[in-house]
Amino acid sequence: MGLSERQRIEFLILLECGDKIRSQAEVCALFNAKYPENQISQGTVNKIFHKFEEYGTVPDLPRTRRARALNEEKKLDIALELLENPHISTVSLACNHDAP
């Protein structure tokens, strides 16, 4: 089960953010005692802390998405262009037809 944004913020509060008064191991133990149903590792605390340091946020960052699929019309247009010019590069084809 994933951690909520509130729980991630709680890590930072427990770490006392930039002051680092508590160790990550201590934060892990405190969090696990408070949320026994949602046990975390010290590595999780480390990742969230470094994400906050680097990006200034704790929610999951957007992930790269799968390339768009081509519809039948675009596939036909690409095939026709290949028939007209069999030596065209794939990069040119993709640019000409807004294709991945």
Rank of each mutant, 00 (worst) to 15 (best):
S4E: 05
A94C: 15
R68K: 14
N32E: 07
K74F: 00
S92L: 11
F11G: 02
E72V: 10
V58K: 03
F31K: 03
I21K: 15
L93A: 05
F49M: 04
T90P: 00
N46K: 12
R6N: 09
V45W: 05
H50W: 14
L83N: 04
T64S: 13
I48C: 12
H97T: 06
G56Q: 04
R68V: 07
G43Y: 04
R22G: 01
D60Q: 09
L30H: 02
L83C: 09
P59R: 11
I13N: 10
L14N: 06
C17V: 07
P59M: 04
H50F: 12
S41A: 06
D77T: 00
G56H: 04
I13F: 06
E5L: 07
H87Y: 11
F52N: 09
A94W: 02
D98H: 13
A33Y: 02
L93K: 02
K47Q: 12
V58D: 00
I40K: 06
S23H: 06
I13R: 13
T90F: 08
D77E: 13
R66M: 11
A69Q: 14
L15H: 01
K34A: 15
F49Y: 15
L15N: 01
Q24S: 05
K47C: 03
E54V: 07
G2I: 05
E73P: 00
A25W: 04
E26N: 07
I48S: 01
L30Y: 02
V45N: 02
A69Y: 06
I21T: 15
P86A: 08
A67Y: 01
L93Q: 02
R8Q: 11
C95R: 15
Q42G: 01
D98N: 15
N46Q: 09
A79V: 05
I9K: 08
C28Y: 00
A69G: 07
N32K: 08
